[in-house]
Simulated scan of single mutants.
Amino acid sequence: MIQVGDVVVSLDIFREKFLCDLDKCHGACCVEGDAGAPLELNEVTQIEKALPQIWDDLSLKARGVINKQGVSYVDEEGDMVTSIVNGKDCVFTCYDDKGCCFCALEKAYRAGKIMFCKPISCYLYPIRIKDFGKVKGINYNRWDICKSAVIKGEQANLPIYKFLKDPLVRKFGAEWYRELELTAEELKKAGYI
Rank of each mutant, 00 (worst) to 15 (best):
V44E: 15
D56S: 15
V74R: 02
I54F: 08
K61I: 00
I47S: 08
I13P: 04
G64D: 09
S72P: 05
L58I: 07
S72H: 07
T82P: 10
D97T: 03
C90Q: 01
D34V: 00
N42Q: 13
E40D: 13
G36I: 01
A50S: 15
G70D: 05
D97C: 03
V91D: 04
I84M: 13
S59F: 09
A35F: 06
K49N: 15
A62S: 14
F14C: 08
K17L: 09
G70E: 08
T93R: 11
M80S: 11
V74L: 05
D23F: 11
E43H: 13
C94K: 13
Q46P: 06
H26R: 12
V81D: 06
Q46H: 14
A28W: 00
S59T: 14
D79L: 02
V65L: 08
D97R: 06
V91I: 14
K61A: 14
Q69R: 15
P38F: 06
H26F: 12
C94F: 14
E76W: 03
K98Q: 13
L39V: 10
V44R: 15
L39I: 08
D12H: 07
E40A: 08
K24Y: 10
K49M: 11
A35C: 03
P52S: 11
G87S: 09
D34K: 03
S72I: 02
V85F: 11
C29I: 04
E76G: 02
M80W: 07
D96E: 04
I66P: 09
P52R: 11
D23R: 13
A37N: 06
A28S: 13
D89F: 10
H26L: 12
D79R: 07
D97G: 06
S10C: 10
G70Q: 04
C29Y: 05
G27H: 02
I66G: 08
V65F: 09
K49G: 01
G27Q: 05
V31S: 11
S72N: 08
Y95D: 06
V85I: 13
E77A: 10
G36Q: 03
K88W: 01
V81F: 06
E16Y: 11
G64Q: 12
L22F: 02
A28L: 06
C30L: 02
Q69Y: 09
N67V: 00
K17Q: 10
S83Q: 01
V81H: 07
A37D: 00
V85W: 08
N67C: 08
I47N: 10
W55M: 12
K17Y: 13
K24P: 00
E43S: 11
C30T: 02
L58P: 07
D23Y: 11
V65G: 04
V31N: 09
F92I: 01
G87W: 04
Q46L: 15
C30M: 03
K98N: 12
Q46K: 15
G78T: 05
E77W: 05
A50H: 09
C20Q: 02
A28Y: 00
E40T: 01
T45G: 14
D34L: 00
E76T: 00
A28T: 04
C29H: 06
F14H: 10
